[in-house]
């Protein structure tokens, strides 16, 4: 596998919803929301903003930052667990809006782990398609705020989109290895149909995530003979600050090595990991030469995985 993460892009809606906007409606305190999730505010898309429009904005931002033209993209992968229609999925429309011509457009309806799976697939597809644009886009606010409100759901989710360009050639961070896994035994524990509310067995999600995420990261690092302490930064799906901290402790890594922005954006499902990557990349300029960055995600399915790249 020879693939490079060329760079990242993102889009976040302008509207901010702080904990004060939710606490009275949910009958909980602002402090309780922050304590159980680490979230202080999230972004909500406007009525005119859609999974497609946010995906396009993030994709455009990514192409500009990577200095890659639409004609260079041979494939686009769009992950979304909140797209409004059964088929076609958003990928073909996103490709058209970005001017990608006849580039193959693949939908991944995987929710939270979708962008991690997208990166892993893209790393294998660059040989056939050249540059692959991976996008995670989610409009979760209608789900989070659907009546009757469920406080465990309403406090968590925000809207946004993230994007990455994966290429067969550099510059960028070389994809070293990826490990993606699934277990349908827990499919009913986190689900969202076209009708009705999001159904989440929070205890089951946390119990499985706290076991599976550290294990898949450790397995990936072990097979690449890399100690967790040697990883420059971990870029994880921003599900819950307490979960991220627990994964860090399980790996015996300082919590500060896990980049987090959940405080500002909430859980943006499959968009979150790429939004975090865009922010960290912009601030740090990507991993230093010879340094490693480890991505990880977990979500409905359950699907989970990790990806290792080095500068």
């Amino acid at each position: 596998m020879t693939a490079y993460l060329r760079g990242f892009g993102s889009y976040l809606p302008a509207r901010r919803a702080g904990n004060a906007d939710l606490s009275a409606r949910l009958g909980v305190s602002e402090d309780w929301i922050r304590d159980v999730s680490g979230i202080e505010e999230r972004r909500y898309a406007g009525p005119e903003e859609t999974v497609v429009s946010m995906a396009v904005a993030a994709g455009r931002d990514c192409l500009e930052k990577c200095r890659v033209g639409p004609a260079d993209i041979g494939m686009v992968i769009v992950s979304s667990g909140s797209f409004e229609r059964r088929f076609p999925g958003p990928a073909a429309t996103v490709a058209r809006e970005l001017g990608l011509g006849a580039a193959a457009a693949l939908d991944l309806p995987l929710a939270s782990a979708g962008s991690l799976f997208g990166l892993a697939i893209a790393a294998r597809m660059v040989e056939a398609h050249g540059c692959v644009l991976v996008i995670g886009s989610e409009k979760m606010s209608p789900v989070a705020l659907s009546e009757p409100l469920d406080r465990g759901v309403a406090i968590l989710f925000g809207d946004g989109a993230g994007a990455a360009v994966v290429s067969g050639t550099g510059p960028g961070a070389r994809v070293v290895d990826a490990l993606v896994q699934s277990d349908g035994a827990f499919a009913e524990d986190l689900r969202l149909g076209f009708e009705g509310a999001l159904e989440m067995n929070g205890r089951s999600v946390i119990m499985q995530a706290t076991r599976k995420i550290p294990r898949v990261i450790q397995d990936l690092l072990d097979r690449n003979q890399l100690p967790a302490a040697a990883v420059e930064v971990f870029l994880m799906h921003q599900a819950n600050q307490n979960l991220i901290d627990r994964v860090a402790r399980a790996l015996n890594v300082a919590e500060s090595r896990f980049y987090t922005n959940i405080r500002r954006y909430g859980n943006t499902s499959s968009a979150s990991m790429l939004i975090a990557a865009e922010e960290w990349w912009a601030a740090a300029g990507g991993p230093s030469t010879g340094q490693s960055v480890c991505f990880a995600a977990f979500g409905a399915g359950f699907h989970w995985g990790a990806l290792l790249a080095e500068g």
């Binding site: 929070g202 205890r203 946390i206 119990m207 706290t210 076991r211 307490n242 979960l243 627990r246």
Partner: peptide, 9 residues
């Protein structure tokens, strides 16, 4: 709480 249970397991 939910986060303590994995520790117990």
């Amino acid at each position: 709480d939910s986060f303590a249970l994995p520790d117990m397991v």
